[in-house]
Structures are given as C-alpha cells and as structure tokens.
Nucleic acid binder design. Structure first.
Length: 569
RNA sequence: CGGGGCGUAGCGCAGUCCGGUAGCGCGCUUGCUUUGGGAGCAAGAUGUCGCAGGUUCAAAUCCUGCCGCCCCGACCA
C-alpha cells in the first residue's frame, strides 16, 4: 500500500477523552474513530489488525476442530424467554419491537440461537460432538462504556459453542478450546494467564478467563507463587479454617455508648480494639430481601461469592430505609443480635469470640459478643475477598496479585441451555439424553487494544509481528530525489511480490514526519532509504521494538526481511 | 441511576466570573525556501460558540429547559 493513497489520519494531539494508552494510540494512529458512546468505526489500519487477529483465531479454531458459522444479530424474544434470560439478562440486552410489534433483541451472545439451531438439526449421538463458532458483532448496552474499544457496546467477538453427548466429551471439548486459546494468545506474543473465574450471567458449572496482564486492566487476579493456581480476585477461594483453639470464657455481653462511631476505623479507635476483633455487619438487598452479611472487621466482602451463595440475581447494599427496617437504627450500627434479616457469615467468624459488633441501636455497639453464644448464624460460607496474608487455597504457598484484561472466557455450561431449550439426542440405546454444552468467547477488539496496552512506548504502538497491520514500512527520506524514490519503489515491489505486507511512505513529507508516523503506527521494520547510505548502495533497517539498526546493501534487504518476518511469525 | 466535569474551526484549547458582535497552537490551501526525527517565511480558507426558548439596544458570555460526551460509583460476559 502507498501511504499517500491511504486513509490513515494520524494525530499528534492526545485526544482529550481518552485515558488509556491503548485508546489514545488507537485514535492517534488512525485505527478507530468514535461514532457515539461505546460505538466505534474501524479505519483501514485498525481493521487490518482486526483481520490479522481474526485470522489467527480462525486458524486455531479450525485446527481445534470447530467449524465457522454466521448467526443472526437480531433475535426473537421467544428464544430468550425459553432460556429464561429474557427476564434475567437485565438491561444490557437491547430490546426492541419490529413493525409487527414482535419483541426482539440484538444478540449480546448467542447461546439461544445456536442451541435452537443445533436442537433442530442434531438428533443422534452419531452427530456429536460438534463445535460451531462465529466471528460477529455483539451488542451489549453497557451501563458505562469506557476505555475505547476495551469496554464498548458494539464489539466484535469470536464465540464458539460445543455440544457433546456426555460430561466426559464436554470436558474434552473444553480442554481443546482451552488449549486453542493458549495457542491464540501465544501466537500474538501476549503475556497472559488463564485464571479460574466466576461464570456470571452466562451460567454453567465452571469457567476460565484468559487475562492479558496489564497494570491498566480492569480485573484483579490472584496467583500462587508456588503452584499453578490462578484466579480472578472475585473467584479466589479461601479455605474453611480449621477449628480454632477451645473458646475461653467470655465476659457477658456489654452494650457501650459509641456516639457517631459508624465505620470500623472509628469504632476501633474509640474502643481501642483491633479491626480483627470487630464483626462488620453489612445489610444487602438480595432480590429485594434483606440479608445481613457478617464479616471480620479487617476483611472485605466479596459480593460475587455472596450472590452465588444466595443464588440471587440482584445484590446491592441496602437502602437506608431497608437498614432501618432490619435493624431499627440508622446506617452504621447494624449487628447480628436481634436483627430482622437472614444472616450469612464468613468462615472467619467460626473461630471468633469476644468481639465488638453493632447493637442495632443508634450510637451503641456491643462488646464481648460471641457467635453462637449471642446470636445464631444460619449459614457460614466463604464470602470474603482473598487478601495479602491469605495462603494459596491449593497448596498453601504465598499468593501474589496482578491486574489483567479479560480477553477470553471459556465456560463449561453443562446442560443449562440444552435442558431449558430441550436440545436432546438419542443415544445408541434409543434413549433420549440432553446435550452437554460449552461456550467460548474472545473479544476481538479488546484483544487488539490489550496488545497495544502491553506493547507501546512514548512514541507509539509496537506491534507484535503477527498482529502488525504491515510488517515493513519503506521510508524514502525525500521523494523528490529520484534515486531514493526509485530504490524505495523497487524494494516495495519486490517485497510485496514475495508476500511481505509493505507500506511505502511515498508522501512528500519531511523525514521527521515520516519517522514519527512510522513509530506511532508501530510497524515492526522500517527501511530508511536516504542519500548517505544509498551512495554506498545501502539502506538502513530499523527494528521498532529493539531500536536495533542494520545497514545492508539494497540487494540483501529482501532476504533479510523475509527471514526476520518468518522468525517473527 | 447517583455524584462531578465538559461542549467555541478537523484536533488541542483560551475567551464565559464582569454582555459590546470570536481568538491561539497544531492541522488544511497556495507560493517560495528547506529536506535523516513532527521545517521557515508569506498569503489564505474554515465557526449555526451543542440545541431550543427567554432577558437585553446587544448573548459564546446571564436565566430556563433539553441533548451529547467524559470521569467516579452502582452494574457487568
């Protein structure tokens, strides 16, 4: 491609509404433009990268035995009512009515459509297993889109769905996808980590997220320094503690005046007790019902765990009214004793005695409270966030924390959808059985953004070769000098003929401008054709990543670059 | 949805408090010079000042309503 003819609007100014490096660079490098909140156009350079990545995804999905399909974006409400998600999916699902008043939605994901397709066509165990995938635009009406294409409303996604005859088969399908995902992200040169994850609204029995490691990532992950355990922070388990030492005699409950002391810090300071000797009582509204979650003062509630334990859809901290109703006091003094709410307690309360807890009375707390002596807990469970001092739940080793960008998610669905939508087949005994499913997503644009997040410097993007929109950019420093432009042109043609992806910067611009643009758009190799070197029959080849410069005779450029490209892919 | 902020040329911004008829830098056009890390000089073009009302002799500026965008939070595959 000739730069002079390309629609490639680069920019020097940092866009004022972009925070993340990848977002700023995608705009400055002329890859994307925003149409409206969370909705982006891809320009030629950006779309080339998208297609590069999609091709890698295709190759690996095909290699893993999946077959590509293309499913509708507009979907009838009936299917979603069948699966139950018309009600449960929430407002992220963009719903509308067509001219016949038929309720419809834009597909945020395609479990319903694919399950409908498969149940209509697959009738026997002989047709199983099958794995179907597509690369298609999804629409999710995000509450707050942000970070450019990282978290937007309309986005490209690869989604695959596996259908197996039994659990063992589903397990194997899951494994295949897991391995394919490893290969995909490895091929892109990304530093990533698969982590155990919560299944969220897709549901199913278990799942892994593929996290590209980046400080700017929205997700926190925990991993063990000793074993292979890694999990999303919201998923990271904490083992049930072994029984503590026998309880010592605890003085009787004592109500103390704690004027205006609402937070753990205030109460601890006032009563001169450490946070681990306080029971924090948080009132939640779980699908509208008041639930008291008890947790040690120095711990943090993990709402995902609470939601899963309760099996509820909506979980939020209770309103002041609900707190007043449950405790008889304003916010800040809730406690387990005498509360009118279902009580859930974190495992850490199991061994606790002699603690401070809210008295359900304004400006009062209890001292010397002990679970089970002073109040009953209906349910003890793992409800808190893992912390620095917790051991690895698998091996007891030391855990570490990091941040990541979720670029892929694989789910073992089980029969959640196949059962609700009756995707069944006949086994060899003529018995009707339910298919066992898995689903597997990769955020296309998000992966590209994550790659930039992980590969950039002050000058711009540094594309890993497999994702680069062009592998080589040829920069004659002055197109008005015939010798330079002729040499550049000849190199461009020969490399192009040999299959290299080349951009020829034939613009009548000063060298500095061209160098800046080449660095900004991140082309891995730049061939600089300048008068000094060319007088000796040579050109310079500069690596965007290492900055390393090779000076080569023009005749050797082709072999050199083709070799480097082969290595890099 | 709650809290905060912002909408002025393609981009980044000043001007708004204190009303007087729109400006800076970059980019763009033309010419000359320049030509290895975002050139210099000269001459230009480009604005319903987010939209709609209102106040006023006069509104980018004051008032009311609306719309859009960004940030924080709730939410989230």
């Amino acid at each position: 491609m000739r730069y002079s003819e390309m629609f490639l609007p680069t920019g020097r100014e940092v866009p004022s509404d972009a925070e993340l490096a990848s977002h700023q660079l995608m705009i400055r490098a002329g890859m994307i433009r925003k149409l409206t909140s969370g909705v982006y156009s891809y320009l030629p350079l950006g779309y080339r990268v998208i297609r590069k990545f999609e091709q890698i995804v295709r190759e690996e999905m095909n290699r893993a035995g999946a077959q590509e399909v293309f499913l509708p974006m507009v979907q009838p409400a009936e299917l979603w009512k069948e699966s139950g998600r018309w009600v449960h999916y929430g407002r992220e699902l963009l719903r509308f009515r067509d001219r016949h008043e038929r309720e419809s939605c834009l597909g945020p994901t395609h479990e319903e459509v694919i399950t409908d397709l498969v149940r209509n066509e697959i009738k026997t165990y002989r047709q199983l297993p099958r794995n179907l995938y597509q690369i298609q635009t999804k629409f999710r009406d995000e509450i707050r889109p942000r970070f450019g294409v990282m978290r937007c409303r309309e986005f490209g996604m690869k989604d695959a769905y596996s259908f197996d005859a039994d659990e063992a088969g589903a397990e194997a399908s899951y494994r295949k996808m897991f391995d394919a995902y490893r290969r995909i992200f490895s091929r892109c040169g990304l530093s990533f980590r698969p982590v155990e994850a919560d299944s969220g609204s897709i549901g199913g029995s278990y799942s892994h997220e593929f996290m590209v490691m980046a400080e700017s990532g929205e997700d926190a992950v925990v991993f063990c320094s000793a074993c292979s355990y890694a999990a999303n922070l919201e998923k990271a388990e904490i083992a049930k503690p072994a029984a503590g030492p026998p309880r010592e005699a605890v003085p009787p409950l004592d109500e103390v005046h704690t004027p205006g002391m609402r937070t753990i810090e205030e109460v601890c300071g006032f009563l001169q007790v450490p946070a681990e000797a306080v029971v924090k009582t948080l009132i939640y509204s779980a699908d509208g019902e008041a639930v008291a979650v008890l947790i040690r003062g120095d711990h943090e509630v993990n709402e995902t765990k609470v939601r899963n334990r309760l099996g509820c859809d909506a979980l939020e901290l209770a309103s002041d009214e609900m707190i007043l109703q449950a405790t008889g006091s304003p916010r800040g003094f809730a406690g387990a004793i005498g509360i009118r709410a279902r009580i859930l307690a974190d495992y850490s309360l199991l061994g606790m005695t002699d603690c401070v807890i809210g008295a359900n009375r304004e400006d009062y707390h209890f001292r010397h409270a002990s679970p089970e002596r002073d109040f009953r807990v209906a349910d003890y469970a793992d409800l808190r966030m893992i912390g620095e001092s917790d051991p690895c739940p698998r091996c007891g080793g030391e855990i570490r924390f990091a941040r990541g960008i979720e670029v892929g998610h694989v789910f073992k669905l089980g029969t959640k959808y196949s059962k609700a939508m009756r995707a069944v087949y006949l086994d060899r005994n003529g018995q009707e059985l339910t298919m066992v499913m898995g689903c597997y997503g990769i955020g296309i644009g998000r992966t590209v953004a994550a790659a930039i997040e992980q590969n950039h410097d002050a000058e711009g993007i540094i594309w890993p070769l497999p994702l680069a929109p062009y592998q080589v950019i040829i920069t004659p420093v002055n197109v008005n000098e015939k010798a330079l432009s002729d040499t550049a042109e000849a190199l461009y043609r020969s490399l192009h003929e040999k299959g290299a992806e080349v951009l020829l910067d034939d613009r009548d611009e000063r060298a500095g401008v061209k160098f800046k643009d080449a660095d900004l758009i991140g082309i891995p190799f730049r061939v600089t054709v300048g008068p000094k070197r060319l007088a000796e029959g040579k050109v310079e080849i500069k690596s965007r990543r290492s900055g390393e410069v090779s000076v080569l005779p023009v005749s050797e450029v082709e072999a050199f670059l083709l070799g480097r490209i082969r290595e890099g892919i």
